[in-house]
């Protein structure tokens, strides 16, 4: 009885696993075979890279990719600097209204920038940052998630370590850099992976704030890639999709363990 249950349970687990991987597996199938095999599954169908060539020529993927990398890095850099300083202040400095500021940060965990597309668009238009990397990046710099995560980590650093550093003649910024940052390394890694995968995939805000190839990231590029309604070639679409998810997917598969652990760690806090 228990044995049968075990088998059923294991089969269900794998069935679900295959179902979950299916869109990706399918995209790979469709992209490496000629169009007529999009709905015909033959094990020995001829292989081809034409679809990738076609997709690559249909849209400026290289430009999109450069934009995505630049935007993701700009956001991550801004977040790391701002969140570190804010988290330190909220964890270790005493000032009036600290708990109010912290409550506002927590509130922002809920009210993510996507919700405020209309207002943020107006603000950035006022700053003349529409269709620039900075325009895409700016609303995400003060990440409430990053501040919260780092504050929790900084609070676990023994205060005596900071005292020792200060007695030894280290400045405030020096203390943050030499003591707090190295001790929070796992948190930085976790936050960075979460942030990179979030912004690599982010769509709505970049769609609103970019107008041209100059700043458009991969996701926005993909949304205007081909016009699926007008009987477009699914094999080419699949190839384009794989090109757009490829870099992140490769990084993910290589660092699978760290990714999962990072998301877990970020989730527990």
């Amino acid at each position: 009885m228990n044995r049968i249950l075990s088998i059923i349970s294991t089969s269900l687990a794998w069935a679900l696993g295959i179902l979950w991987l299916f869109p990706l597996l399918y995209a790979i199938w469709a992209s490496i075979h000629p169009s007529e095999f999009v709905t015909r599954f033959e094990l020995f169908a001829p292989l081809t890279l034409d679809n990738f060539r076609e997709a690559w020529n249909q849209a400026p993927f290289l430009r999109y990719m450069i934009n995505t990398v630049a935007i993701t890095m700009l956001i991550l850099g801004g977040q790391l600097i701002l969140c570190t300083l804010a988290a330190y202040a909220l964890a270790r400095m005493e000032f009036k209204g600290r708990s109010l500021v912290f409550a506002l940060v927590l509130m922002q965990l809920m009210v993510v920038p996507e919700i405020l597309i209309v207002e943020n668009y107006q603000t950035l238009a006022g700053l003349k940052l529409i269709d620039t990397y900075w325009g895409v990046a700016l609303p995400y710099f003060a990440s409430a998630f990053g501040i919260f995560l780092l504050r929790q980590t900084f609070k676990t650093v023994p205060e005596d370590l900071e005292n020792a550093a200060r007695v030894e003649g280290c400045s405030l910024l020096g203390t943050i850099w030499h003591i707090y940052v190295p001790l929070a390394k796992p948190t930085y890694l976790a936050f960075s992976l979460v942030s990179i995968s979030y912004h690599w995939n982010n769509f709505l805000w970049p769609l609103v704030v970019t107008n041209t190839e100059k700043s458009r990231p991969l996701t926005v590029g993909m949304s205007i890639f081909g016009a699926p309604e007008s009987g477009v070639d699914w094999a080419v679409i699949s190839a384009g999709t794989l090109i757009s998810v490829g870099p992140l997917l490769i990084v993910f598969i290589l660092f699978q363990r760290q990714f999962v652990q990072s998301f877990m760690q970020a989730g527990i806090k």
């Binding site: 679900l16 696993g17 295959i18 979950w20 991987l21 869109p23 990706l24 399918y26 995209a27 469709a30 999009v38 995968s197 690599w200 995939n201 769509f203 991969l218 996701t219 926005v220 993909m222 949304s223 890639f225 699926p228 699914w234 679409i237 699949s238 384009g240 999709t241 757009s244 998810v245 992140l248 997917l249 993910f252 598969i253 699978q256 990714f259 999962v260 998301f263």
Partner: peptide
């Protein structure tokens, strides 16, 4: 890996595959 993969894939790209389904 199978369960977690959709989390790291951009929704907008994969939507194209789903559109075909």
């Amino acid at each position: 890996l199978a369960y977690f993969t959709p989390t790291v894939l951009p929704m907008i790209s994969v939507a194209n595959i789903w559109l075909f389904f």
